[in-house]
Design a protein around this nucleic acid. Structure first.
Length: 418
RNA sequence: GUGGAUGUAGCUCAGGAGGUUAGAGCACCAGGUUGUGGCCCUGGGGGUCGGGGGUUCGAGUCCCCUCAUUCACCCCA
C-alpha cells in the first residue's frame, strides 16, 4: 500500500461493483415512485446546531460520532450523520407544510459517522430513506414500513426480520420512565458502567443493554405503560401490517438511539450479517418539526442502508449483475489502418452501438484476444481489403467471418445485434 | 472508544525454530501463426515482504511503535 490511501472506513466502488449499486438505486427509485415519494436532495453538510437539536445532545451520534468542522468564516458545520433532521429542515425552509398533506419525501444519499469501522459499518455509508409529514395515524407508519420492506424484497434480500415497538409519547413516557427507574434503582450497583450512566440520562436505553439481558427481561414493559392513544396507535399499526402481510416481532426492548422518536420504532435486520445486522430502521417523530421551529406536525420515517443491503444480497448468493459489454470491437491490421478503425468506431457509436478499439497498436491476434475477453459480439477487421471497399465482419461466438461492403456494416450489425 | 486476530506480486497463498539474487497458481504482456481469439507450449514484466524504529554479522522470519483490515463489545445503516 502506498502512503496515500482512502480515509479509514470509506470505500471505493469499482465498475463491476458499481453495477450492483446502480441496480439497487434504480430499485429504490422505482419503489419510492410506487408509493408517491418525491426525491429530496439536501447538502452534504449542515450547520452543526441542526443535529445537536434535532438528533439530541445525549445521543451517541451527537456525542461522539459527528464529522464537525469550522468553515473559513468560523461557522460550525457537520457532515450529515443521518437523514431525518436535514429533511425536516428542508420541509420547514421551503414551507412544505403549506401545501397538500401529507408530504412524502425520499432520499438516496451518504451519511457520515466517526465510528470504529468493521465489516458492515463504515464512516461513510449510504441510505435510502423516506419521510412522511403531516399524517398522525398509523396508516402512515404502515406505509413507511411497507416501503422499506418492499424495497428489500424488490432488491432481492431473501430473509429479514421486522422488529416493532412503541416507546410512547410525552403523555405516557414520563410515567414509564419513572417506573423503569424504580425497577432499576435497587439493581444499580449490579449494572454495567454504561448502564449506570443510562440510568440518569436515558433510562429507556437500559432496556437494550446486551451485557445483562436478564435485568431487562424482568423490567416493566413499554406496552403495559402506554396511554390509550399510544396503545391504539400501536394496535392500529399491527392490524395494518397484518393486512399488508408483513410479519413482525414485537420487541419491548427495542428503543433506538435517537432522541426524536415517539410511539412507533422499528428495525429491519438480517440473520446473515454478523454483528452489524440492522438493514434499516426508523420510527415516528411527532415532536421534531416543532422542536426545529415549525408548527406541530406529525411525521414518520425510516431508512435502509445500501451497503448492508448489498452485503445481505451477496450473503444470500444473489448473482452479480453484468456490466454491459461492448457490441463491436474494431480491429485493424497494422498502423496504416488504425485511423480507419477510429473512423469506423466513431460512425458506429453515432448510431448508438457500444464500440471499443485497440489504442495500443497491437497485433491482430492480440486484438482478437481483447475482443473476446471484452465480450464483444462482433469484431470488425480493417485491412488491405478496404481498398476494394470491403471489410471483414467476424461473429465471435460462432467463430465465422465474411467480407462485407463498408456501407452495409451498420445494417448487418443492427440485424445481428438487435 | 475497549479487547483480540491478521497484513508476502492485481488475486489466492508457500516461505520448516532468522542465513546468500523472495516463490507458486491464476491474471497481465509477448512469441510460437509474414492478417485471426477462446486450448497448448515458451518466455517476460511486475514485490518499498503494510510503514517506521530496534535486536543481530545477517530480519519476510524476533521485539516495539504505527497504519490498514477484520472479529467481538459499543452503537447503528
Amino acid at each position: 500500500m502506498g502512503e496515500l490511501q482512502k480515509p479509514r472506513g470509506t470505500r471505493d466502488v469499482l465498475p463491476e461493483e458499481a453495477s450492483r449499486w446502480r441496480l439497487l438505486e434504480d430499485r429504490a427509485r422505482q419503489v419510492a415512485a410506487r408509493y408517491g415519494y418525491g426525491e429530496l436532495r439536501t447538502p452534504l453538510f449542515e450547520v452543526t446546531e441542526l443535529f445537536r437539536r434535532g438528533v439530541g445532545e445525549d445521543t451517541d451520534i451527537v456525542g461522539k460520532e459527528m464529522y464537525t468542522f469550522l468553515d473559513r468564516k468560523g461557522r460550525d458545520m457537520t457532515l450529515r450523520p443521518e437523514g431525518t433532521a436535514p429533511a425536516v429542515r428542508a420541509f420547514l425552509e421551503h414551507n412544505l407544510g403549506a401545501g397538500p398533506q401529507p408530504v412524502r419525501l425520499f432520499y438516496l444519499q451518504p451519511a457520515f459517522r466517526y465510528e470504529r469501522p468493521e465489516e458492515g459499518r463504515w464512516r461513510q455509508h449510504h441510505q435510502f430513506g423516506a419521510e412522511c409529514f403531516g399524517a398522525a395515524g398509523a396508516a402512515a407508519d404502515a406505509e413507511v414500513i411497507a416501503l422499506a420492506v418492499d424495497f428489500l424484497r424488490t432488491a432481492g434480500v431473501a430473509d429479514f426480520r421486522l422488529r416493532l415497538n412503541s416507546i410512547g409519547c410525552p403523555a405516557c413516557r414520563p410515567a414509564y420512565r419513572a417506573a423503569l427507574r424504580e425497577y432499576y434503582r435497587p439493581l444499580l450497583p449490579l449494572l454495567c458502567a454504561d448502564c449506570q450512566e443510562r440510568f440518569g440520562q436515558n433510562p429507556l436505553r437500559l432496556l437494550d443493554c446486551k451485557v445483562d439481558t436478564a435485568h431487562a427481561a424482568g423490567a416493566p414493559r413499554t406496552a403495559d405503560h402506554l396511554c390509550t392513544d399510544c396503545r391504539e396507535h400501536l394496535q392500529g399499526l399491527e392490524a395494518l401490517l397484518a393486512r399488508l402481510r408483513i410479519s413482525f416481532d414485537r420487541d419491548p426492548t427495542l428503543v433506538r438511539g435517537l432522541d426524536y422518536y415517539t410511539r412507533t420504532v422499528f428495525e429491519l435486520e438480517s440473520p446473515r450479517l454478523g454483528s452489524q445486522s440492522a438493514l434499516g430502521g426508523g420510527g415516528r417523530y411527532d415532536g421534531l418539526v416543532e422542536l426545529l421551529g415549525g408548527q406541530p406536525t406529525p411525521a414518520v420515517g425510516g431508512g435502509v442502508g445500501l451497503e448492508r443491503t448489498l452485503l445481505a444480497l451477496e450473503a444470500g448468493g444473489a448473482p452479480a449483475p453484468t456490466v454491459e459489454p461492448p457490441q463491436v470491437f474494431v480491429a485493424s491490421v497494422g498502423e496504416e489502418y488504425a485511423l480507419e478503425a477510429m473512423g469506423v468506431a466513431s460512425q458506429l457509436r453515432s448510431a448508438g452501438v457500444r464500440v471499443i478499439t485497440d489504442p495500443l497498436g497491437r497485433s491482430l491476434k492480440a486484438q482478437l484476444k481483447q475482443a473476446a475477453r471484452a465480450g464483444a459480439r462482433w469484431t470488425v477487421i480493417l485491412g488491405e481489403e478496404l481498398s476494394r471497399g470491403v471489410l471483414v465482419l467476424r461473429d465471435m461466438a460462432a467463430g465465422v467471418q465474411e467480407e462485407v461492403p463498408a456501407g452495409e456494416l451498420l445494417t448487418r450489425i443492427d440485424k445481428g445485434v438487435v
